[in-house]
């Protein structure tokens, strides 16, 4: 707009000014509106080329089946009802593991964030445990909890625990002391201090922690199911590998992507609703 106005005052551009004005919205839309579509161009092109190459039998079908074949495989499984069983069990594992891990992370994060003594006692231990790659615990979990559900849930919980713990503990320690002073001025009790100042203040960071915890829960359910399961999306992948059906593996990857993205979107929408209109 500014350039358009300036141009208007330049005599040699005087007649160009209205054109500039009328063109401005069109130009804006060509940059802004299709941004999401622009991001889709390359993936669509890749899918198209992939499809064409597969149809021309230039790609071995048992190695890289056409996208339409992958879609058809998923559709057939969905129609047969098998798919929902697998998706359901995986989602249940993620839900339970995330719930346990996030609860633990919330509890210990709040403790260490609020009480300096708790932080001095617990934080060094938790930080050193965090530096162990979580998959390394798998043999121990299997030994302790067996190959059934418990060991899977434990692994997923562990994945969800750390981001939640870390974000809450750090955020609670770094609440603006200037805002805490306001609470002091109004003589809030420690209970009110937490409820009316600290919790609302850390909410944005906490939600970010929950989101990454959920992301890790999905990551770890893949690991857990690949390591031995008789049901679940991860089992489908192993099954596809054993029976040499790449379409099933690719379909499972797609399912994980869709499920993970959906739950992240749900979490982020819930977070946005909680945070309301406040400035981040």
């Amino acid at each position: 707009m500014i350039t358009a106005q300036q141009d208007h005052w330049l005599p040699w551009k005087a007649d160009a000014a209205p054109t500039l004005d009328s063109r401005a919205p069109a130009k804006k839309s060509s940059v802004n509106l299709p941004d999401a579509l622009v991001g889709g161009i390359v993936p669509l092109a890749v899918l198209f080329v992939w499809e064409v190459l597969a149809r021309l039998e230039m790609l071995p079908p048992n190695w890289l089946p056409a996208p339409t074949v992958v879609a058809k495989t998923i559709y057939e499984m969905a129609a047969a009802g098998d798919l929902w069983k697998h998706v359901g069990i995986t989602a249940a594992r993620v839900a339970l593991g995330f719930l346990l891990g996030a609860s633990g992370g919330t509890l210990l994060g709040a403790l260490t964030g609020y009480f300096p003594v708790a932080r001095k006692l617990l934080d060094p231990l938790l930080q050193s445990l965090r530096s162990v790659p979580s998959i390394a615990w798998v043999p121990l979990f299997l030994l302790w909890l067996g190959i059934e559900e418990s060991s899977k849930i434990a692994l997923i919980s562990l994945g969800a625990f750390f981001p939640v713990y870390l974000s809450l503990s750090v955020a609670m320690r770094h609440v603006d002391p200037k805002l805490l002073e306001v609470g002091q001025l109004y003589r809030l009790s420690s209970f009110e201090m937490v409820g009316r100042l600290i919790l609302p203040a850390v909410l944005p960071e906490y939600i970010v922690g929950l989101r990454s915890g959920l992301g890790l829960a999905w990551m770890f359910v893949v690991a857990a199911e690949l390591l031995g399961a008789s049901r679940g999306i991860g089992y489908l992948m192993v099954d596809g590998q054993m029976t040499g059906r790449a379409a099933i593996i690719l379909g499972s990857v797609l399912l994980f992507a869709v499920c993970g993205k959906t739950t992240d979107w749900m979490m982020s929408a819930a977070g946005a609703k909680l945070l309301g209109h406040r400035a981040r």
Binding site: K178, Q184, R187, R196, L197, R278, A279
Partner: peptide
Amino acid sequence: PDRNRGMVFQEHRLLPWLTVRENVAF
């Protein structure tokens, strides 16, 4: 601190998650 003294700081120190009226009612 006590309610018989009110304080205004150099920065407004309003709570960003509360509306204007909720801040005044704090």
